[in-house]
Design a protein around this nucleic acid. Structure first.
Length: 359
DNA sequence: TAGGCCATCTGGTCCT
DNA sequence: AGGACCAGATGGCCTA
């Protein structure tokens, strides 16, 4: 299931493959279309389907004197002239009975196709509910859902491999790799990143991308400072570049690269080349966040990173107004993400990881 | 109004 | 023969 999902959704692979075959495919398709002239058809049922209702209607209009099994050369008149006669099975004439059967068959196929697509959409909805960001009203598109799911799986795998938690920017970058800017903003909003924190919170040690020395334990100021000093933060723009080159080889179609590129401080160890476009996080969260107190901000961080810190009281942060970590999702109180759901209803051993990411 | 997203129809291909 | 799957075409809806 997952492997199939992976193979289907890897956008980079698809893009590369599409680019690679684009030129050849156009020629192949053209040649293939040329081969499918009506006179070359050999499958009667395919002919029935191809000719469809228009043919059926014409037959129903008057040519109903043929036997159901009657056969005749389909393109005799059209191919007459200098062209040699086509070989192969002769085509059955469309009779009213055959047309009716074809129509019924087509209707049944349409119904099946609708059902199939509905099932596919249902599965996609289920997938939306288990990726980090879920909103009933602001649904991720299909392609974005698949991309986010892929990134989510990769991020979890990375954490399991490393055995420690990434900083929030890194995590969001991993999740947002290849996503469109609106989706990136939405995901970042779900994780309650906001520009005000970047702009206003002091940096006590000037550390860059500070990582906690111990896995699954985080000091809140480490994150604040890391975000403040992050190369992804662009002073004065209120924007956060969440698509560092280490996390996305290219912005997907529809993305907008800054003209001429920006020139932020790319001293981050993970910087290897051109940065992707900046991501503005001034979205729906900013309004409420601007009203939030320092306590609220601490609450935000604690909700994000408290999941695996309960065993280390010294590093745990006080929970916010709602108190319990496993209680109602804090983000539900934040318009317009009031309907955004973060999930923490899975069985161990995933519980901690998901609590870590979703709370 | 253009572009993105989606649902649906349709024809082709492959498999049982 | 019929079903599953796929991709192209088309039109509707929504949003910037």
């Amino acid at each position: 299931m997952l492997s199939r999902l992976f193979s289907e959704v890897l956008p980079d692979v698809q893009r590369l493959a599409a680019d690679w075959v684009e030129d050849n495919e156009s020629e192949d398709c053209k040649a293939k279309d040329d081969e499918h002239e009506p006179c070359d058809l050999e499958d009667d049922d395919l002919d029935d389907a191809r000719e469809g209702s228009s043919r059926a209607e014409s037959e129903l209009a008057g040519d109903d004197d043929e036997d159901d099994e009657a056969e005749e050369e389909e393109c005799g008149d059209e191919s007459s002239g200098d062209k040699p006669k086509k070989r192969g099975p002769k085509k059955r004439k469309m009779t009213p009975a055959r047309a009716e059967r074809s129509k019924v068959r087509r209707l049944k196929a349409n119904a099946r196709e609708r059902t199939r697509m509905h099932d596919l959409n249902s599965a996609l909805d289920n997938l939306r509910k288990v990726v980090p960001c879920y909103s009933k009203t602001q649904k991720l598109s299909k392609i974005e859902t698949l991309r986010l799911a892929k990134n989510y799986i990769l991020a979890l795998g990375e954490i399991l491999r490393n055995g420690k938690r990434p900083d929030v920017v890194t995590y969001v970058q991993m999740l947002c790799k290849g996503l469109s800017q609106p989706t990136t903003n939405l995901v970042a909003g779900c994780l309650q990143l906001n520009t005000r924190n970047f702009l206003t919170e002091p940096c006590s040690d000037g550390a860059r991308f500070h990582m906690p020395s111990s896995p699954f334990s985080v000091h809140p100021y480490s994150y604040r400072c890391s975000r403040l000093s992050s190369p992804h933060y662009q002073p004065g723009t209120g924007a956060l570049n969440l698509r560092g080159p280490a996390y996305g080889s290219g912005y997907e179609a529809g993305g907008v690269y800054p003209p001429g590129g920006t020139s932020p401080d790319y001293n981050s160890p993970d910087y290897e080349g051109q940065h992707s476009p900046p991501v503005c996080l001034n979205g729906g969260l900013s309004g409420r966040q601007q009203e939030s107190s320092e306590t609220d901000r601490n609450y935000h961080y604690s909700m994000h990173y408290s999941g695996l810190t309960t065993s280390r009281p010294g590093h745990s942060l006080p929970f916010g107004p709602s108190g319990a970590r496993s209680g109602g999702s804090h983000s539900e109180n934040i318009p317009p993400f009031h309907d955004v759901h973060l999930h923490h209803d899975r069985a161990p051993p995933y519980e901690d990881l998901n609590a870590f990411f979703h709370n």
